[in-house]
Every structure is written in structure tokens, then in C-alpha cells.
Amino acid sequence: MSYFTTPPHSEVKRKVLNSALILFVEQGFFKTSLPDLVKHSGVSTGSIYHCFKDKQAIAQSLMAALLEQIESEQAHILSAHDTTWARYYALCEWLMHTAQAHPNVSRFVLQARHKEFMPDLVPICSSKPFMTLRNTLQQGMEQGVIRPMDMMVAASCAYGGVLRLIQLHLDGMLERPLMEYLDEITQASWRSVTPIV
């Protein structure tokens, strides 16, 4: 099932990006060859080179497409909710649902050593989607529903447990389906950043 739904991608490009996502996660960037991508995607070598300069360009396009799709999904979530808690909960639910429905997306974004094959890429934690997660907390601080604290501490408290559960899910370590942990982890994490009464 394709993760990419944003319109700018042609069918050929979508096929190559989906295959790259799977193969880069399963085999690693360096062990994935162009013939591997041709075989997996069903797209000819010439068509791949028509869309992408080389394998690194495929990786860069893949990351850009993933971030674009993630930003689109986050924007939809934020527009559908008014309060900081509702936005926070919905963002955590989305993170966990994506990891369950599209594990290779989470593996590539959260686990791949991007700097090894995309040395000019800004750190993933500095990308717009991660800024959106932090901005939600910043707005909560400005409204007084989240305690004033260092933003990195707040983000670690609010999202660290969720991301750790996602990691455990990806590693096959959880006893129950990932989504069954949603309420417990979000409530515990939320209590760690809200005012103590």
C-alpha cells in the first residue's frame, strides 16, 4: 500500500519511492542497487533515470516526499482540533497509527542513519514535522496549560515515551498492539508537562 498520497508525484515516481522506502529499510541504502529498484518497482532503468539523477537523489526525494506527506497530515490534524490537549493527543495517535499502518515510514524517518548517505540533510529533529510537535507544546505554554520549561525537556517528556513505544513496536517487543497503549502513554506524558496541582 502506497504511503504517498500528495498529488505532485507521478505514478512512476510513486512506484520508485515506495520501492526505495521498502528496500532502503530492509537492505540499507548502500546495499540497495539500481537493479534492485528496477526489479522491485517494475519501473525501467531509463524511467528511473528520467526521474532521478542517481540513487542519492532517490533517497533525497524519498525524504522530501515523506516530510511533505507528514506535514500535510499534521496540518489536517491541527486544523481539526482547538485545544492543546486535543492536538497533542491527536498527534500522538497519528504517530502511533503511522508506525502501525506504515512501519517502514517510521523506520526510515526515525531509525535510518540519514547522514551516512545524505550528508547535507538537516537533522531530522530540526525538520518541520518535529518543529510542529514542539510548536504545539509552545502554544500550550503560552496558554498556561503546559508548565514553562526548556522546550527540549518538554518535547522529550511529551513525545519521548510515545517514540519509545513506537521503537519497541518496530522491534517486535510489545505484548499488545501498539494502539492499545495510546491512552496510557499520552496521559502519563501529558501529566509530566502540565502544572502540578
Score class of each variant (00 low, 15 high):
Ser2His: 11
Ser2Met: 07
Ser2Gly: 06
Phe4Lys: 02
Pro7His: 03
Pro8Phe: 03
His9Ala: 02
Ser10Met: 02
Val12Met: 12
Lys15Ser: 14
Lys15Met: 09
Val16His: 03
Asn18Tyr: 08
Asn18Gly: 14
Leu23Arg: 06
Phe24Asn: 04
Glu26Ser: 10
Phe29Pro: 01
Phe29Asp: 01
Lys31Asp: 13
Ser33Ile: 09
Ser33Asn: 09
Asp36Pro: 12
Val38Met: 08
His40Ile: 11
Gly42Trp: 04
Val43Ser: 03
Val43Ile: 11
Ser47His: 10
Ile48Leu: 03
Cys51Asn: 15
Phe52Pro: 05
Phe52Val: 07
Lys53Gly: 09
Lys53Trp: 02
Leu62Lys: 03
Ala64Gln: 12
Ala64Trp: 06
Ala65Lys: 04
Glu68Ala: 13
Ile70Ala: 04
Ser72Leu: 00
Ser72Thr: 12
Glu73Val: 01
Gln74Cys: 00
His76Ala: 12
His76Cys: 01
Leu78Met: 12
Ser79Thr: 11
Ala80Ser: 15
Thr84Ser: 04
Trp85His: 12
Ala86Cys: 09
Arg87Val: 08
Tyr88His: 06
Tyr89Met: 05
Ala90Pro: 03
Cys92Glu: 11
Met96Asn: 10
Thr98Val: 14
Ala99Arg: 09
Gln100Thr: 14
Asn104Ile: 00
Val105Ser: 08
Phe108Ser: 13
Gln111Arg: 15
Arg113Ser: 15
Lys115His: 14
Lys115Ala: 14
Glu116Ile: 00
Glu116Gln: 12
Met118Glu: 04
Pro119Ile: 05
Asp120Trp: 05
Thr132Ala: 14
Asn135Ile: 11
Gln138Cys: 12
Gly140Thr: 08
Glu142Arg: 07
Glu142Lys: 09
Gly144Trp: 11
Val145Asp: 09
Ile146Lys: 09
Asp150Val: 12
Ala154Phe: 06
Cys157Pro: 00
Leu163Tyr: 08
Leu165Phe: 13
Ile166Lys: 01
Ile166Pro: 01
Leu168Ile: 00
Leu168Pro: 00
Leu168Phe: 07
Leu168Tyr: 06
His169Val: 10
Met173Pro: 01
Leu174Phe: 08
Leu178Arg: 02
Met179Lys: 09
Glu180Ser: 10
Glu180Cys: 07
Asp183Ser: 14
Asp183Val: 10
Asp183Ala: 11
Glu184Tyr: 08
Ile185Met: 11
Thr186Ile: 05
Gln187Trp: 04
Trp190His: 04
Trp190Cys: 03
Arg191Gly: 04
Val193Lys: 01
Thr194Lys: 03
Ile196Phe: 05
